[in-house]
Amino acid sequence: MADGAGGLRPLLPRLVVAVALCAARSSAESGAPTVESLVRRAIDAAGRLDDYTCTSTKQEKVDGKMLPEETFVLKQRKQPDCLYLKWVVEPYKNRETIYCPARYGDKIRVHEGSGVAGWFGTLSVDPEGMLARRNNRHSIREAGIFHLLKVVGERFELARGDSEHAIGQRTSIEADVHGEPSYCFSFDEEATKTEICLHRTLCLPTRVKTFDGSGAVIETYTWAHYHLSVGLTDRDFDVGNPAYGF
Rank of each mutant, 00 (worst) to 15 (best):
M1W: 09
G4I: 09
G7Q: 09
L8I: 05
L8P: 00
L11K: 10
P13Q: 08
P13T: 07
R14S: 14
V16K: 13
V17S: 11
V17D: 15
C22V: 08
R25V: 11
A32G: 02
T34H: 02
V35T: 09
Y52G: 00
Y52D: 08
S56C: 11
V73F: 13
R77C: 11
K78D: 12
Q79Y: 06
P80K: 02
D81M: 04
K86L: 11
E90N: 12
P91L: 06
R95H: 06
T97S: 11
T97F: 00
I98V: 15
P101H: 10
G113F: 01
S114G: 05
A117V: 04
L123M: 14
S124L: 03
V125S: 03
D126I: 03
D126Q: 04
E128M: 06
G129V: 08
G129L: 12
M130H: 08
M130L: 15
R134E: 13
N136L: 02
H138W: 11
I140M: 12
I145L: 14
L149Q: 12
G153S: 07
E154S: 10
F156L: 06
E157N: 12
L158R: 13
E164S: 14
T171H: 11
T171P: 00
I173N: 12
H178T: 01
F187D: 05
E190I: 05
E190S: 10
I196T: 09
C197R: 09
C197V: 10
H199V: 11
R200C: 07
L204D: 07
R207W: 01
R207N: 02
R207H: 02
K209Y: 01
T210L: 05
D212M: 05
A216F: 09
A216Q: 15
A216N: 15
Y221D: 04
W223D: 05
Y226T: 05
L232A: 07
P242T: 08
F246K: 06
